[in-house]
Amino acid sequence: MSTLATKTEKKKKSRGASTGSSFDNLEIFLLHLPTTIWYLLFCYAPMFGIIIAFKKYKVRPGKNFLWNLIHNSKWCGFDNFEFLFESSYFGPMIRNTLVYNLIFITLGVIIPVALAIMISHLHSKKVAKTCQTMMFLPHFMSWVVISYFVNAFLATDRGLVNNLFKTLGLSDGKHQWYQDIDFWRWFLVFLNVYKSVGYNMVVYMASIGGIDAELYEAALIDGSSKWQQTRYITLPLLRPIISIMFILAVGSIFRSDFGLFYQAPRNSGALTDITQTIDVYVYKALLERPNINLSSAAALVQSVCGCITIILANLLVKRIDPEAGLF
């Protein structure tokens, strides 16, 4: 009996003493190794690829990427960037990315928060649940499927909207929606809200569900209206989660949803002026009209700016509310 006790004690002691030593934890270290290798290969190796942006990349057939990059391509400093900044599509590309993202971020906070609060006010829990379920639905459809929906409505030939207009006698039913830049300017915003509102709402719904019901009871006894309860209880308590969602969104202000800007408008040439964002440009410059130098430069600009914005946004939010920072 006593030997058993000392044995356990010894074991405990040896474990206690060895905490932090890497040999004892070899197993978990090994377990972690495959991911690390995969990670270094597929996430960090491409980072060295950003030097393409500073070189004049040339391909000699039959040679691999590294050989081409190191031996076959000359350094050219910031030439690629200069060329990119001076090109006529750089301005619109940045403008589209930033302006649309600003609109999306603003609406991506206001609409989901408003809807979440509204749904939480509904009398019947069952109705509230059904509403939430329905609004979540578009999140599960890919952009390809959404673009089919859009096409069903907007097709020039037999699209639902043109049909309806013709039946009602509002137009001749031949309107070319995919060429209509003024319409798409706003329709892109609508599509973004349509697809993302349900998903963004979930977080707020859950936070509202977590608010102590006693606060509302106390407010009710004091004779406050629903609007006052929302204004003075719900909104202030949602502030931390709103700011976290805000930084996450601002951090990706230089990115854009490829599906929304390329897939949904079916890459319509007439809409390029508003649909060309950085991502769309990089894709086109890789596969449609190959220009690896310029697209690498654009991608690097995007990455660096994105990284800076997320750090700044985090600092800003921390200053307003020290608890709410992301890191």
């Binding site: 290969l41 980072m47 991608a299």
Partner: peptide, 27 residues
């Protein structure tokens, strides 16, 4: 876990910065 903080940084860093489409494609 040895060097836990380092690995965590290694992973989260890529959430904010990455090589981008073209180097990945070439790789």
């Amino acid at each position: 876990m040895p060097m836990r903080g380092f690995f965590m940084f290694l992973y989260t860093f890529t959430m904010f910065f990455g090589g981008g489409l073209i180097p990945t494609y070439l790789l």
